[in-house]
Design a binder for these strands. Structure first.
Lengths: 119, 119
DNA sequence: GCGCTATAAGCATATATCTGCCTATTGACG
DNA sequence: CGTCAATAGGCAGATATATGCTTATAGCGC
């Protein structure tokens, strides 16, 4: 659907924000499937159809350097009897990108506040 | 569907026979998913519904000692970028069980042959 | 022979990631 | 401002294994 140069899609912002929220916590890493669950539960039944949409979004973010990933130690996955996970973390670049989006989104809000104060 | 004491179901016989055929080959081991493909291709679109039927049959055969399994080294699965496999092989007991079934199945055939020869 | 019950089979879904193919949307450009 | 093209989204399925729940069936006892 033809992307505006350098812009972030809402799904991408969502991923980064959720990932940044994790940075405050203990592990700071997440994996695709858990993120899919998060989005499905919160954003009122967003389908992500078979998760294809999400995994592609994750890939895009990694290619752009906003996320970095590593494969979980396969021994751990085997011990827990589940498929192995690809662990993602938000990079400094990723944090900056979200910060930029948040700030530009606040501009109209500030304008509104000023407007209310004046009336 | 209430099993006759000690009897083998046709799906179980099929698994064991296919497994025994492999014994002549190089690896002698198989995994559930490959077996499912085999059965699907050969037995004219047997569904095995999401493979649930097959995996339970494999489990039954293992519990009865006719199959033995081991988990594939998770590093290999990771290197090949796929979920890990559970590798099965037919035990001596398994071979004997199939042998017994095959022999009892030949009885009627022999009787028929005798009958034909006499006419 | 008939009904009861044990159990296999079918259906669905969980776990986790990924790709192919088609459609819908949207930014960009004339 | 309308059309074109790039790309995101949706659908489907592959790779592997496994479990919960319901339904069908077959053996066994009466």
């Amino acid at each position: 659907m033809r992307r505006k140069a350098g812009a972030l899609l809402s799904i991408e912002i969502g991923i980064l924000q959720a990932g940044i929220a994790l940075l405050r916590g203990s592990d700071a890493e997440f994996h695709g499937y858990a993120m899919a669950r998060e989005i499905r539960d919160q954003e009122g039944a967003r389908s992500l159809t078979a998760h294809g949409t999400l995994y592609r979004a994750l890939e895009r973010l990694e290619v752009r350097g906003l996320l970095a990933s590593r494969w979980e130690d396969p021994e751990i996955a085997a011990a827990e009897e589940r498929p192995r996970r690809r662990m993602y973390r938000v990079t400094a670049e990723g944090e900056a990108a979200v910060q930029a989006v948040a700030e530009s989104a606040q501009e109209p809000a500030k304008a509104l506040k000023r407007g209310l104060a004046a009336s």
